[in-house]
Write a protein that binds this DNA or RNA. Structure first.
Length: 280
DNA sequence: CTCAGTGTTCAGTG
DNA sequence: TCACTGAACACTGA
């Protein structure tokens, strides 16, 4: 669920609540999966007493920039989310809504809680435990962040460079769009949405795209990411003509978009929704 | 009870 | 060494 716009929304939320403040309390769940190779006490120690200078993001990875290292890094995985406690959480599409609190008022699936001076609190929850929390000296010292390609929102290359890169790739454009070593931040729905707006069939080999098609792809990425980031990933504010609103269908039978049928099939190892009448 | 689905990593193949 | 594919991971909710 969380793709680039959702992670950017979370980053902005953390900036609003945490930036410039000193952390007075941190609680890290002893989850040996989410805390891949960090100890909960080490993460807590890295946070408490520190001042949050900024929140960094590249692709779907984010990190807290503190006044001392190590910094705390995170990834939301498929079901992770961050919300401010005591306020309404940002609405997420589909089944990704932030987990409700249990009877005691404590967030379900809590993995990290941070409280700053003045009382602001944020909670990182993750029901499916594919999210991660870890410590690193900085983005340049972290192998996972280092592996990423360009951030699609902040550093999308120009058409000519994109065209040159895609010409070297022999797999379907859908699979290439999902490659974080190239298009950092693109996930399943953004890849489908981009291809729909660009009029390109997901199974087309990336190397066969013409310069005109790469131009359309480039424009579609900018349009979709720009809008989704602008509304802080609130899908209720996505335009009605986006595939997004129709791709999951009504549960039964064929779904349509502007009179054309939507096909669902596996491409690049992921469920892909596309409109054959509009994508070649 | 079964299964889809979300992102990343890793094993296996070419 | 690289590109690519498909499975595995963990869990919820339909």
């Amino acid at each position: 669920m969380p793709e680039l716009p959702e992670v950017e929304a979370v980053r902005r939320l953390m900036r609003r609540v945490l930036q410039g403040k000193r952390i007075v309390r941190a609680e890290v769940a002893p989850d040996e999966i989410v805390l891949s190779n960090a100890r909960p006490e080490a993460v807590e120690a890295a946070l408490v007493g520190r001042t949050v200078q900024d929140i960094g993001r590249k692709g779907k990875f984010w990190w807290l920039e503190l006044d001392e290292t190590p910094w705390v890094f995170g990834h939301l995985g498929m079901s992770g989310w961050i919300r401010e406690l005591g306020t309404e959480s940002i609405r997420l599409h589909s089944h990704g809504d932030a987990p409700l609190d249990d009877e005691s008022g404590r967030p379900r699936f809590l993995k990290l809680l941070v409280e700053v001076e003045g009382g602001g609190r944020i909670a990182f929850t993750d029901g499916r435990r594919l999210g991660r929390l870890w410590l690193a000296e900085g983005p340049h010292a972290d192998p996972q962040v280092q592996r990423l390609g360009f951030d699609c929102h902040e550093n999308l290359p120009e058409v000519d460079e994109l065209h040159a890169r895609l010409q070297k790739r022999k797999s379907p454009i859908k699979a290439v769009l999902l490659d974080q070593a190239l298009f950092a931040g693109v996930g399943n729905w953004i890849a489908d949405e981009t291809l729909y707006h660009a009029g390109i069939a997901p199974k087309r080999l990336a190397s066969t795209l013409t310069r005109e098609e790469v131009t359309a792809l480039h424009a579609a990425l900018i349009k979709i990411l720009g809008h989704a980031v602008g509304v802080e990933a609130d899908y209720t504010r996505f335009p009605e003509d986006w595939l997004f609103h129709h791709r999951w269908g009504g549960g039964k039978g064929a779904t349509e978009l502007l009179g054309d049928s939507i096909v669902r099939e596996t491409v690049g190892g992921r469920t892909t929704a596309w409109v054959p009448a509009r994508q070649r």
